[in-house]
Amino acid sequence: MIDKSPLVEMAKGPSPVGAARRATPTLSRPIKLRLTGVSKAFRSANGNTTLALQDINFEVREGEFVCILGPSGCGKTTLLNIIAGLDRAGCGDVLCNGRRVKGPGMDRIVMFQESVLFPWLTACKNIEIGLKSKGLSKAARTVKAMDFLRLVHLSKFANAHPHELSGGMRQRVALARSLAMEPEILLMDEPFTALDAQTRWILHYELQNIWEKTGKTVIFVTHNIREAVCLADRVIVLSSRPGRIKREYKIDLPRPRDDGSVEVAALSTEILAILRDEIEKVMREELDEGSCKECDVKCVGVTPDNSNPK
């Protein structure tokens, strides 16, 4: 008898580990990730510097589900890349389990907005290639990969190549691969944005289920306020560029959350008001800079007075 991966076992039945961890109050759990004074500037080819992130401080505790919200271009992807070790912070510290992050490591896995699968490998092999880095034997790799494909309901497509799968299926394979790596922190950069509403809803549900049962630490970047409110323990709202932490919301609503419920709607509206301020700031800057007539004409419909009935 081949032993089943503990994660899949947990995901099947009621899980003692995840449940117990969830029962412990967040604040008494150990700190998994700590960012202190993280800033990041990009220098473009023409010599200008863009400040993408400025003085980001926050910490994430073990098993916490944190959503990062912010207007487009505020540095969410940059922040995730820095945490993953794919990019270096200009200044400040990123500590994971108390150790400074120096480069990518298998304890932090990123799920990108578009599924980044190796096109020449089948779905199953795409998962196995990561498991190989963890030193699993060939047989163990296959068993585990199949387990996780089953978890995202794709075991029938184990031998399909990525181009034979739909966008949602590819993203599910990517999710299965991320989970199979059993990272301590799962970093998700708008993973479901490119998908249609139904698929997104299903994946939300699956992600929540898996998260509740495994107690992984998740940092989830999104544009979608409702998505954030439905998923997160805590929502961090970033300001427009340069990205700074504008507000943090603790979300104590009981799970599973219905994205049509009154509480979710109320919180979403509150966060929307804050975000709207930020987006308007961006637009005002654009208006100030772009003095050409064309810009003025384009932006008439979205001037602050029109879009913000105070």
Partner: peptide, 14 residues
């Protein structure tokens, strides 16, 4: 709030 309307690309996964 701006929402990304990136269309899922057909065919090539990456």
């Amino acid at each position: 709030v701006p929402r990304k309307t990136t269309l899922p690309k057909k065919g090539l996964a990456l």
